[in-house]
């Protein structure tokens, strides 16, 4: 669709890639089990060193498996919780075209959550168990989804910033050392490649509209900029355990590297759009070849991660309610399947 692609050529690297998990630090990975049989640890290490994929039935250190399950599960939870802030606007979208786009996008997020849970299940995790961990607050999701969406411009800014941040984080994950995760990420990156440009295109349209629309866009930019920078997680010097994930090639770049890449990518897009990013320290640094920018409020990030963000309770409550209120439906389907199987068996015996 040439019409829809036009903007993209103007804006490098704006391929949307969904939601990322906050780069929570991984707990120190356990040492290989002392009884790791001869050669298997070496074989694993050599596979990683050759930049080849680890596949589900391969031997892997327990720490690698646990780290991956936690990371993939958090990523999946983020996709599912991430449906909420935008999903609230599907019924209110101000044109049928925007309604369809948003509906399809939020649906994609459900699909991406499912692909990721599927990848986690190849490691022996169980989706029901992961869901329970989420709704009991034992596993996290990206902090960004604990902020409210206050106007329709937020839908555009989420596409632009949040999916843009996800690009920086997730494109490298297409090369993650764990095969099913890497493949899921390729699919997600491809499917979501519309989202960010849809968001940006919405903002461009709004900036060409009325004064009220332009104010909505700037207001949304002001509110989402810093939380978006926090999506990359704490600064590297406060994220000691991510080194292990990098050694395992589960993670390919540090939090600060990815954050800087995001800023470099976004600044020219903001100029083109005609909005101001709310950071007085933001400027091009000729020497480093990157932008200098201010420091996010890390205390705020910690508060939001710990459950004290503006919408944490609401997001969790919605997910818990949906799961609990759906129980009778899931149980009925299971019961029907069992009855059908029994009937078939009886029919065969008769």
């Amino acid at each position: 669709m040439p019409g829809a692609r036009k903007h993209v050529t103007l804006i490098p690297n704006e391929w949307s890639v969904g939601k990322l998990v906050t780069m929570t630090t991984t707990h120190a990975a356990e040492a290989p089990p002392p009884d790791a049989p001869d050669g298997l640890q070496e074989h694993f290490d050599a596979t990683i060193a050759r930049d080849q994929r680890i596949e589900p039935r391969d031997w892997m250190p327990e720490g690698y498996r646990k780290t991956l399950i936690r990371q993939i599960a958090q990523h999946a939870h983020s996709e599912i919780i991430g449906m909420q802030p935008e999903g609230e606007w599907i019924t209110r979208a101000p044109s049928l075209r925007r309604k369809a786009i948003l509906f399809a996008k939020v649906q994609d997020e459900a699909g991406h959550g499912l692909y990721l849970y599927s990848a986690a299940e190849t490691l022996g995790a169980d989706r029901d168990d992961l869901t329970r961990r989420l709704i009991e607050g034992r596993q996290k999701y990206s902090s960004i989804f604990n902020y409210p969406t206050l106007s329709f411009a937020d839908v555009g800014v989420i596409g632009w910033f949040v999916d843009g941040a996800a690009i920086c984080n997730q494109v490298p994950l297409c090369r993650s050392s764990y095969g099913p995760y890497a493949r899921a990420m390729v699919r997600i990156c491809k499917e979501e490649s519309f989202h960010q440009r849809q968001g940006y295109e919405l903002l461009m349209t709004m900036m060409r509209g009325t004064d009220a629309q332009r104010e909505m866009v700037q207001d949304a930019v002001d509110r989402w900029w810093w939380p978006s920078l926090m999506m990359f997680g704490p600064p590297d010097d406060a994220s000691p355990n991510s080194a292990r994930s990098m050694a395992w090639k589960i993670k390919r770049h540090s939090n600060d590297e990815l954050r800087r890449r995001f800023v470099d990518m976004t600044v020219p897009q903001a100029e083109k759009l005609g909005v101001t990013l709310p950071d007085p320290q933001l400027r091009w640094n000729e020497e480093s070849g990157h932008h200098d920018f201010g420091t996010p409020d890390w205390d705020e990030l910690m508060r939001v991660i710990k459950g004290d963000g503006p919408c944490n309770d609401r997001r969790m409550e919605r997910r818990r309610t949906a799961h609990e209120e759906g129980a009778w439906v899931r149980e009925a389907a299971t019961a029907h399947a069992a009855k059908q199987a029994a009937r078939a068996e009886k029919g065969a015996a008769a």
Binding site: I80, M83, G87, T91, K99, L114, T321, G326
Partner: peptide, 14 residues
């Protein structure tokens, strides 16, 4: 659309 994020299972969301 009112079912979004409220469906009884994720597959039913889709």
């Amino acid at each position: 659309a009112e079912w979004v994020t409220r469906a009884p299972e994720l597959e039913e969301e889709v």
